[in-house]
């Protein structure tokens, strides 16, 4: 029991440290900026999935479903972002009445 609690506490502490790193990326190391925040947020999601949800202990069906969720999300966000990322917006001139 104590070992499990210590492990969970380590996971929670790591997540708080990553939260602090997110804030540091925004306010102390602005060169990291948005990319740094995105990478750290992804790391936090991974730590929660493996640390709190114990993903590593589950069998192939769970791994398949977790991987499928990530794949579907990647397709949704990747293909969905193509239009706004590649479209050129031209300012319109509105004629005075």
């Amino acid at each position: 029991m104590t070992g499990v609690v210590v492990r969970l506490f380590a996971v929670a502490s790591l997540m708080v440290a990553l939260l602090a790193a997110e804030l540091a990326a925004v306010f102390i190391f602005p060169a990291w900026g948005r990319i740094g925040v995105a990478i750290i947020a992804a790391a936090m999601v991974g730590v929660a999935a493996f640390g709190f949800m114990d993903l590593r202990r589950e069998g192939p069906p769970v791994w398949l479903l977790a991987a499928a969720a990530l794949l579907w999300l990647a397709i949704l966000l990747g293909l969905g972002s193509l239009d706004p990322l590649t479209r050129t917006l031209y300012p319109t001139v509105i004629a005075a009445p």
Binding site: E58, G59, P61, V62, L65, A66, A68, A69, L70, W72, L73, L76, L77, G80, S81, P84, L85
Partner: peptide, 30 residues
Amino acid sequence: ETAISGIWLFLASEALFFGPIFLSWIYARL
């Protein structure tokens, strides 16, 4: 194992439920 696979399938569908909300953030911000 069946119950745990079931909840993970549900969570995968929940991830896709929130996916378009994240996509709307990308659209609106860009």
